[in-house]
Design a protein around this nucleic acid. Structure first.
Lengths: 341, 341
DNA sequence: GTGAAAGCGCTAACAG
DNA sequence: CTGTTAGCGCTTTCAC
């Protein structure tokens, strides 16, 4: 562990190993045209000197930056964190690094970041819960710039994306509640600008229809995926002359808001009101009663998206469309049959 | 918006504007030695061509990467997200980008990342909740590599760091409970490897001492900052022959675990047991009852740390030590005087 | 197999 | 004020 203060370049390594610096470069890049014996000598020299390749230089000369841009709306809930965990795992494997941009749900920022990043700052883009991808998907596609959308329903165009089976998730959860005996099921939507929110609602509606339960507009509350929406929506439901016996929130944090509201009214979950969420964030299994919820394979979505992006970077011509990972109903403690009346 | 597919370099701009490419470089770098008129012409040419400077090349030639490395343990709780929000705001202002590394609390990863990053990949390092900084602080300091520790108590060495007044926060909260009339106050610690956890406990102890309340080892449960610790710890407390009337958890997520445990026992917060947290993550004000907690100025810590780092990058010789931002007790609904017996 | 040479796009002296 | 000239550290030809 020689700790010279100065930067060690391939030239230093070359001198140390007694080869030309071109050969060192070959070793670094795992070029086959190096005698095993020479390779060994170079590797040893690198270690002895504590050599670390300069990324900037590699990029300049070679073309790749070894950076992947990651755009996320925010880091507030565990939701994004889980996705990033998956992305991270996959990228680390390939020696790529993540450049993080937080858009705070500002559409203009999103477009601006994308525009700049696509001009060579990163090798590819991962867009989580993109707000208005329509603005830039065209440009990205035309330039053949690699990108993958995470958790977004296509804008009609078919472009690389990974998401979950939101419709099915909404359907399954609602069906589960119906089979438990519930007839009045409140639904709190997500932010309806997002395709996933629309799909979950559609799934809920479809299940009602299948079981011939009339839809009641009073039992649908439009939220935005934030916890207070769950609270407010539930309060509104509970004030109804004929309140629901179960409430299905479009994500877990809103479901927690619902739980708070139910308790606030002096009622109990699940005895008086069943509560069901969506996502299965880490918190879901930790609250009491543990939340029954529709699991999204968040970490896996991140991992799959990263893989897709890497493929796309290797073979830009390859056509890939949307991949849907399946959701799964995770039954815990927050739902039970309604009280008999 | 000329959309040539090829990369546009300063040479193209130079040709377009009818100047040498050295002049274009000056314009990019806001060099004063350019005739306003010429600058204008160059700027126009850049716009016309849609020029974006190549970061890799700038770094290679100029020395700065315009990237800041950010090491975080994980992205699970809102806690880190808030800090990042502050960092982000400050860095965006300066046109710097964030390279994200998630260590997942693995000490070896932490050291490895730091070692690599410090070798020119980024201009500076921001280390949130570092696990074993002692391993690399020496090297970093010796090389005069700019870095700032966030939320970590110094290892004896005095190095750039920003944190909160954890001791005072622990003291204030405990004092508040005592003044409410509580005598038996359960305390759930954080991960005791971390200085902040130690300080909060020390503050708790100091307050007890001040008010001549004997410390009871049964009322201290060692946790690790995760929600289940709060649940388990509270369960243990509640099983005591003489259970506490108030429980102070070393962070908010553990406090939420405590709330769950209290409810699980059929008791109410705050009527039967008061609960107090630490951090004031966004969730704290959203749960019911809203959590009384010690607020850490998380976002501001991020902002201040970023500023410190930028200063350090500009003036590497400058000596800076630890900055402590003050905590504040935020009184909401989860605490009240104990039931009279 | 390996060495030598030519840039990648830009900054930073250095001359005028 | 502006043009010119060297590199920054590395990948890639292209020879040998």
């Amino acid at each position: 562990m020689t700790d010279k203060n100065l930067k060690i370049t391939i030239k230093d390594v070359a001198a140390e190993a007694g080869v030309s610096f071109g050969t060192v470069s070959r070793v670094i890049n795992n070029d086959i045209h190096v005698k095993p014996e020479t390779r060994e000598r170079v590797l040893k020299a690198m270690e002895r000197l504590g050599f670390v390749a300069n990324r900037q230089a590699r990029s300049l000369a070679g073309g790749k930056t070894h950076f992947i841009g990651l755009l996320v709306p925010d880091l507030g809930t565990g939701y994004i964190g889980e996705i990033i965990r998956g992305i991270d795992a996959e990228l680390t494997l390939q020696g790529l690094d993540l450049v993080l941009y937080t858009t705070h749900r500002t559409a203009s920022k999103e477009a601006a970041y994308v525009a700049n990043l696509a001009k060579g700052m990163v090798d590819g883009l991962l867009l989580v819960l993109p707000r208005n991808p329509a603005d830039y998907i065209g440009v990205l596609t035309q330039r053949k710039f690699p990108f993958v959308l995470i958790d977004h329903q296509g804008t009609g165009k078919d472009c690389p994306a990974v998401g979950a089976t939101n419709w099915q998730g909404g359907y399954d959860a609602t069906e589960y509640l119906i089979k438990l005996g519930h007839r009045r099921i409140g639904f709190i939507t997500g932010w309806m600008d997002l395709g996933c929110a629309q799909d979950r609602l559609a799934g809920y509606r479809a299940a009602l229809r299948t079981y011939h339960i009339p839809e009641d507009p009073d039992l649908i509350y439009e939220g935005t995926f934030f916890q207070p929406d769950g609270y407010t929506g539930a309060m509104k439901f509970l004030d109804l002359p004929d309140p629901p016996t179960a409430i299905f929130a479009s994500n877990d944090v809103m479901a927690m808001g619902v739980m708070d509201a139910v308790r606030m009214r002096g009622l109990r979950v699940p005895e008086d009101v069943s509560v069901l969420g969506f996502d299965d964030i880490p918190q879901a299994s930790l609250v009491r009663p543990a939340l029954t919820t529709v699991q999204q394979p968040l970490e896996n979505m991140g991992r799959v998206a990263a893989q897709m992006l890497l493929d796309l970077i290797d073979q830009p011509e390859r056509k890939v469309g949307r991949i849907e990972l399946s959701t799964k109903l995770v039954i815990r403690e927050s739902c039970q049959p309604p009280r008999s009346r």
